[in-house]
Design a protein around this nucleic acid. Structure first.
Lengths: 199, 199
DNA sequence: ACCTGAACACCGTTCAAGT
DNA sequence: ACCTGAACACCGTTCAAGT
């Protein structure tokens, strides 16, 4: 049936893949099904991801853990088109860290179907350098220094990811807590961890 | 080629599957390859796992998080064949919890290739009721009560799983810490969490 | 009960070809 | 550059059959 300018792009492919994963699970994502959803032959996807499904999986892992995972993301292009300087967050360090952790958790929960993809595929620092700096600054402000900053940042990441895995894992059970209770438990552990790390 | 008493069993199948996963990754496990490794036609596996690969995955998830994940496991059949009573662990609560966390982490690291299987497949309380009781008792002894015990247990599980995911995720990077440093970081966060939970 | 072997529908990927 | 369509090797699973 002749030419087809489907207007495919890496982002459209990733988004559609995430949509399929959300609906039918990770096992329900096939290149052929993805092609159908994009109204394209499956093989067209290989033009944008020449290394195939594995490369697509990596791209999804990066997408899920990337920019938007940053807590208190700046409003896009609403003000200050010219200056790149993000305005200073003047809230106390623990509020900033909690906001980041909440945003990170929300993001992981939103794409919980792709969670198992994140286990073996590491984006270089989730959320990018801005997030890394945010956490680093907050922990420094909390009084940590040297090795302790790295270790505390690792512990925070571990806890956030683990809490989401824990929640997703048990959410189909009978005695599963509702989302408000899950959030409360997440905060309970997070507060404890922050307290312990900075005491 | 006539009959074949392969002596297949669920456990042999699970062990062989874990072996393949360790060698070629989760994506390298196929029913046909598993059959080859067991010197059996792939379809023979369906006699032991009638629901197919999904059921096998579940069984693997249970196996990986099960009995042996208990900290300070009793020496098998060395003494007291008759009495089922496990001897009382008289060490302080934090030592017991740390021992459990270490064993759990070791277990997850040992089967890190199957880690992504654990995200969406929940065994009812990892390690079984004995582990649940161990954690419960230790936290109670630490002075926690009511809701706090459950919340603290959740936080501990979250942290352990998250730490392993975090480690596995970054272990192929350049600046990846060696296993001694990983272990130190794990303990650093664990101590902080325990301190925060019981303060 | 336990395993085989052929069969079916589906899969990821390659490759030559179209525009 | 971007997409198609046929082809190939491999996959999970069903089913009838063997012992």
């Amino acid at each position: 049936m002749s030419r087809n300018y489907a207007g495919l792009s890496r982002e459209r492919i990733i988004l559609e893949a995430l949509h399929i994963i959300a609906g039918r699970g990770l096992g329900g994502l096939s290149m052929r099904r993805l092609g159908d959803a994009l109204e394209v032959e499956a093989m067209a996807i290989y033009h944008h991801f020449p290394l195939g499904k594995e490369q697509l999986f990596n791209a999804i892992a990066v997408y899920v853990t990337s920019p938007a995972a940053v807590g208190a993301a700046p409003i896009e292009g609403e003000e200050s088109e010219g200056t790149e300087e993000p305005e200073e967050d003047t809230r106390p360090w623990d509020v900033r860290l909690t906001a980041w952790a909440d945003a990170y958790r929300d993001r992981l929960l939103e794409f919980s179907g792709a969670l198992s993809l994140l286990v073996h595929r590491a984006p270089p620092t989730p959320g990018g350098d801005a997030t890394r700096a945010l956490i680093h600054d907050a922990l420094t402000e909390a009084g940590l220094g040297g090795e302790d900053v790295e270790r505390a940042a690792d512990a925070l990441h571990s806890y956030c990811v683990g809490a989401v895995v824990h929640q997703v894992r048990h959410q189909d059970e009978e005695e599963a807590p509702d989302s408000a209770e899950s959030r409360a438990r997440f905060h309970h552990g997070l507060r404890a961890l922050l307290r312990g790390l900075t005491s």
